[in-house]
Computed example of a mutant assay.
Amino acid sequence: MIHPTAEPGTPDPFTEHRRLLFATAYRMLGSVSDAEDILQDAWLKWSAADRDDIRHPKAYLVRTVTNLALNRLTSAAVTREAYVGPWLPEPWLTTPDIAEETELADTVSMAMLVVLETLNPVERAVFLLREVFGYSHAEIAEVLERPEPTIRQIAHRARQHVQARRPRYDADPARRDTVTRSFIAACQGGDLNAMMELLAPDVIAWSDGGGKVTAARKPLHTPSHVARWILGVLAKPGQASLKIHPASINGEQGVLFTLSGHPLGALTFDLLNNQIHRLRLQVNPAKLNGVREGFGE
């Protein structure tokens, strides 16, 4: 991305706040590629703006990105109605230490992104700006150009909604690492019993192929069904060069599948009492940009 030129010796606000802007767009949209598009559009607006009229560059940029994301979410709703099979957010290959950053911990996880999908666009914007980035109700009212009392009501409703749906899970890195490696060993060995032992009795698995590649069109239930489906997919012909790697995905330990050196799928899961309760497999090629770039393609 090209950035506008700042005055000599002065940090450019867009570059300075790019991390925050990307984080805002990604959480709003659940898509790395869409978030990058939003940042490009925001930069175009920023580069064309009269800087003398912008008293607070950070607030201007956050407002621009938020409103661009809201517009995209509105148009995306129609597309998602016709989506083939379950819709999952686009995974993001992160550095292993990113989960230690307060700003990114938990709120960037796949579990949270899925919960955010159940909010309407405005509720999502208010929740993120308030609960994740710490904006006041007055500041959010200015960003969204709505009365402050309305923002307070939306914030309260969104917070209750998220709290009611937020899954309980164990984010301890050591436990996740142990389960991840056991999961990979079961996959590589085709060990059905070992796989089933890792899955909770109430396990649910979703796979997102978007109609482009083979994936389960409905959620899968029970350890036997989920384990047999996973091992069946891995045993398909033509996958002799399939590799399975532990990877930091959305700030948590997950699994990356590669074929001939190219990302083929990304798996994330919710862990509780050393068992996998929720499992999400993203195999839609159009939604692997976030792991493809990080993997080095």
Score class of each variant (00 low, 15 high):
Asp12Val: 04
Val283Asp: 07
Val115Cys: 09
Ser248Gly: 04
Ile204Ser: 01
Ala77Asn: 07
Pro237Ile: 05
Leu119Ser: 07
Ser31Phe: 05
Pro57Tyr: 09
Thr5Val: 10
Phe127Trp: 15
Gly30Met: 03
Ser248Thr: 13
Leu93Val: 04
Gly265Lys: 07
Tyr60Phe: 15
Arg55Cys: 02
Ile54Trp: 09
Val179Leu: 02
Thr118Asn: 09
Leu272Thr: 00
Val179Cys: 02
Ala235Asp: 15
Glu142Asn: 14
Leu192Met: 03
Asp270Ala: 00
Leu128Arg: 05
Ile204Asp: 00
Pro57Asn: 08
Arg228Asn: 14
Gly251Met: 02
Arg130Trp: 11
Gly189Met: 03
Arg176Cys: 00
Asn274Tyr: 01
Ala99Pro: 01
Leu129Ala: 08
Ala155Pro: 04
Leu271Val: 00
Ser182Tyr: 04
Thr15Asn: 09
Pro96Tyr: 11
Ala194Gly: 15
His156Val: 10
Pro8Lys: 07
Glu131Thr: 10
Trp229His: 13
Arg159Val: 06
Ala48Phe: 04
Ala111Met: 01
Glu145Ser: 14
Ala69Arg: 04
Phe295Ile: 02
Val122Glu: 15
Asp202Ser: 11
Thr66Cys: 01
Thr180Ile: 06
Arg18Glu: 15
Pro173Gln: 01
Ala48Asn: 09
Thr10Ile: 08
His56Pro: 00
Thr214Val: 06
Arg51Asn: 04
His156Ala: 13
Met196Gly: 06
Arg159Met: 10
Leu20Asn: 04
Gly9His: 06
Val132Pro: 00
Asn284His: 10
Tyr26Gly: 02
Ala111Val: 01
His245Met: 15
Thr15Gln: 14
Trp46Tyr: 14
Asp202Val: 03
Phe133Val: 07
Ala82Val: 09
His156Pro: 00
Ala240Ile: 11
Glu100Phe: 09
Thr258Arg: 11
Asp177Ile: 03
Asp52Lys: 13
Gly209Met: 08
Leu242Thr: 12
Tyr135Ala: 11
Val143Ile: 15
His17Gln: 10
Asp37Ser: 15
Trp46Gln: 01
Asp37Pro: 01
Met28Phe: 11
Trp92Ile: 04
Asp170Thr: 00
Phe22Gln: 10
Lys287Ala: 13
Ala125Phe: 07
Lys45Cys: 11
Ile276Thr: 03
His17Asp: 08
Leu129Ser: 03
Arg19Ser: 12
Ala235His: 13
Leu288His: 08
Val203Phe: 02
Arg217Gln: 15
Asp177Tyr: 02
Pro147Arg: 09
Ala138Asn: 09
Pro121Tyr: 09
Pro147Gln: 10
Glu131Cys: 11
Asn120His: 05
Arg19Val: 13
Phe183Pro: 03
Leu264Ser: 14
Lys58Ala: 09
Met112Lys: 13
Lys243His: 11
